[in-house]
Nucleic acid binder design. Structure first.
Lengths: 153, 153
DNA sequence: ATACTTGCAAATGATTTGCCAGTGT
DNA sequence: ACACTGGCAAATCATTTGCAAGTAT
């Protein structure tokens, strides 16, 4: 509901725009590249490179894992894609501007909570006040104890 | 300078105490195990498993990497050791209660800053207020843009 | 035509595991 | 003695890289 006070990232309105960004850089629109983009648009949340290569559980044609990594890197360098790490697992990729919530995870029970809107802004402001850094918590999440686990001991 | 208001973690007064913790669990004090502990006590900051295995650059006898990982895991399960991740590199290990500062890293220039005392408490409070989680930022660091890089674009 | 890209295999880096010989208690 | 450990090799997992063949522009 609240409008972000922060500069909105690239925020692509559609797949077409993403393809345009590629063209603008002299990069080619190969079927493998288009597939990665389609997977990210189709995904309901951040996905692993492996899931993209697997065609999102068969919903899309499968492709080569190495190429997927290469394309995700390329797209990330263009600002079209972002990747995050949750716990010790593989990286999770998503379109920049989508699924851009902060994450907070419990290192005991694994509970994960998304931080959005005002709450996200409040934490960001606190960090900026404390050390001057502008943090997003969307690459490496915040890790700590959820209320339940914190109470137990 | 400032004294922490928070409960001090396990905080082992000495190597002897750590060894006592091991004994109390029926675990043995092997030379390899003692070496890992000595390395952590001798380290000036968080170190990689590889550095421990290498005897901290030769200052201590070298040992087997797999055993170092096993011992670090054992010690971490006992609460004697903690490990953190900085960027995409290998994990960094330290004694619980030592080098327990929060970390904030810039994802552009790599600058890393330690968050201590009041600043650390302020961020922790903000996170708790926002989502109820008690976060330490010492496992996965906060990642964002340092003031310089944030200003550049 | 000519780069940019792909797909596949092999390489890397970090961490884990199987196993049997070695050793604290 | 006996169970816990260490050392070493081999296995995993995630990700990267080398290269020859393929293809968008």
């Amino acid at each position: 509901m609240t409008v972000s006070h922060h500069a909105v990232p690239v925020h692509l309105p559609s797949l077409v725009a993403a393809l345009g960004t590629l063209r603008a850089q002299g990069l080619r629109i190969s079927s493998a590249r288009r597939l990665v983009l389609e997977a990210l648009f189709a995904a309901e949340g951040p996905v692993t490179a492996d899931e993209v290569a697997g065609g999102l559980d068969g919903r899309l044609p499968a492709s080569d894992l190495a190429s997927v990594y290469r394309n995700l890197d390329t797209l990330e360098a263009l600002g079209v894609v972002r990747h995050v790490h949750v716990g010790h697992g593989p990286g999770l990729y998503a379109l920049a501007g989508r699924h851009e919530t902060g994450y907070v995870a419990c290192d005991r029970c694994g509970t994960r909570v998304a931080l959005e809107g005002d709450a996200l802004a409040a934490v960001g402001d606190a960090v900026r006040a404390a050390c001057g850094f502008a943090c997003a918590f969307d690459h490496f999440p915040l890790v700590g104890r959820c209320p339940d686990c914190a109470a137990e001991r």
